[in-house]
């Protein structure tokens, strides 16, 4: 079976996306006779690529002119599939990956699936596992026709390193690209620098139970003093309490800190998938029956603001003690 891994060199999340594709390659029991990396780029031809955890038989560097248009990528992919057909294409977990997987499969009469957590080849067909019913269940499907175009599931943050590409394997693809008729003009406004949310040890996630913006602002202060990054469930983000780039859950970030404190979050399926990889989960909720307690290691039933304010005090006292301790120790050293 021949497979291609489709990535965009200019993506902000290239190394994380490669990690997610690696994770899929790791899971899958399928042996590939041939795996190629298909790397899109815009201006500067890349020399490095993210590390892929399987031997690559070739690397195709594909120049794309209209990077903001999925239709441009699609045309290129269709052309490329004509030149070197593949049985399986793995796309990234983001919106672009989902769109390309779906539309390419349609154009090539293949099958597609998104948010794929696992896949394996069983005789001539491909089996995939993906979430259904609002992340409350997962389903196993058989995909019926190749090429199989899969967008992989999001994974906790674990970017792979960039490595120098083997020159001999590289082939550069330059194809004609037509200007889109429907875009009169476009403008890209870059996001502020990424939050440290994906890559931190301590996260405080706030939900609807926080009650109001004022309380959330207090919680942000607490997060600051205890050294936590703050995140929000969809309602907390929709209430404009927490910035949208801090949305946790199926349609936001998947986080895996050492410690996650979920405060006032009820724990819906689409939310829980965002934190369930955390190493330790503390849930605080006034409702002892809230589903969040099903995925928590430790739970406190009570008012989240009161408890977190107390926690802040305890942590600060301990910190100060330690600092005093340090000073005492250093004195001993100097004496």
């Amino acid at each position: 079976m021949k497979a291609a891994l489709v990535l965009s060199f200019d993506s902000n999340s290239l190394q994380q996306q490669a990690h997610e594709i690696n994770a899929m390659l790791n899971h899958t029991g399928t042996q590939f006779s041939n795996v190629e990396l298909w790397l899109f780029y815009k201006d500067r031809k890349p020399e490095f690529s993210p590390e892929i955890f399987c031997p690559l038989s070739g690397i195709k560097l594909i120049q794309v002119e209209y990077v903001h248009l999925p239709e441009s990528y699609l045309d290129l992919l269709v052309a490329l599939m004509g030149q070197c057909p593949m049985d399986l294409l793995l796309f990234t977990s983001d919106g672009l990956g989902q769109e390309l997987a779906t539309r390419l499969a349609y154009r090539l009469n293949g099958s597609s699936a998104l948010k794929v957590e696992d896949c394996r080849l069983i005789r001539d067909t491909l089996e995939v596992i993906k979430p259904v019913y609002g992340n409350n269940l997962s389903a196993r499907f058989v995909l019926k026709s190749s090429p199989y175009c899969l967008s992989v599931a999001k994974q906790p943050f674990h970017p792979v390193k960039m490595i120098l590409m083997e020159l001999l394997k590289i082939k550069t693809i330059l194809l004609n690209q037509t200007q889109p008729w429907w875009v009169k003009e476009h403008l890209t406004i870059l996001d502020p620098p990424k939050t440290g949310l994906s890559n931190t040890d301590l996260v405080l996630v706030v939900g609807q139970g926080a009650g109001n913006k004022k309380t959330v602002d207090v919680l942000k202060g607490i997060a600051d003093t205890i050294g936590a990054e703050i995140g929000g469930s969809r309602p907390a983000v929709m209430n404009a309490w927490i910035d949208i780039n801090r949305l946790i859950g199926a349609s936001g970030l998947i986080i895996s800190p050492k410690l996650c404190i979920a405060a006032g979050v009820s724990g819906t399926g689409v939310f829980s998938v965002g934190i369930k990889n955390s190493r330790f989960i503390v849930a605080i909720n006034i409702d002892s029956k809230a589903p969040i307690f099903q995925i928590a290691d430790v739970g406190i039933v009570g008012d989240l603001a009161t408890i977190l304010l107390e926690l802040e005090k305890v942590i600060l006292t301990d910190k100060n003690k330690k600092q005093v301790h340090h000073i005492v120790e250093s004195r001993i050293e100097t004496q």
Binding site: N12, H68, L96, I189
Partner: peptide, 16 residues
Amino acid sequence: SRIDGATLVQRVKLPM
């Protein structure tokens, strides 16, 4: 709309 790490603002013609 949202694209990778940015907000894209486009003036577009229909159909769409």
